[in-house]
Amino acid sequence: MWAICFRECKDLFKGFKPVLIISILLGMAMVSTRLGAAFPDEIEGVTQKEMYTSGLTLTITLFGILFVFALSHSVVNKEIESKTIRFLVTKTSRNRILLGKFMGTVLFWLIIIGTCFTFITLTSRMFHLTNYIEIMIFLLYSISAAFLLSNTVPKSSQSMFIGLILALAIPGLSLWAYFSERWYIMWLKYVTPYYYTELAFPLQGVPLLFAALFIVLSLYLFKRRDF
């Protein structure tokens, strides 16, 4: 499992897309730390501490799902398409393959977000643990959703297309659901992670339950598959 985890994490750092995403996140982290330094007092309910991480939080909130889906929409189906999965499936259990890939993707994001927070910590001289956990909860939800997508959609070209539409639609629809009283849309806020970020602990962790559900569903589908 660990071999698959480290391979997955290493492979995620390759290519143009991760470089772009890392640059955007680090860029936003830099901008927000400057904001934090420039405005030492609280502005419209945003504390100075929050200001340091606001850029990163905002970027992840708006584009986090897009970033994760762009990198991981084909995490499973690409290996099935290329048939390299046959080598893995004859060497270890299907659970270990999927969990290894999941942990590799989580490790990638832990490193990326960890790097951004290290930079923020060095600038602000404060460690923003709560924000780090909040962002990681949001990303765990997104990663497990990407895994479910990659397990459900057989072709990587299709999962990229569907992933892009979902990644752009989910934030907008969630915002609409958050403010709407209409029955046909308001339920959506309970199944996406945005609503829970406003709540206090332990309700903030509800997206983790969804993440667990997505992973269990992915494992179920993956175990029943012929390669």
Binding site: W2, R7, T84, R86, F87, K91
Partner: peptide, 26 residues
């Protein structure tokens, strides 16, 4: 197992493949 249709990770060398598969096998 040698499966009927074998494709590999094009960006890896033969040695890297064997190293990886060995580790996957535990």
């Amino acid at each position: 197992v040698l499966p009927d249709y074998s494709t590999f990770y094009d960006h890896l060398s033969a040695k890297d493949h064997l190293k990886y598969f060995c580790k996957v096998s535990g």
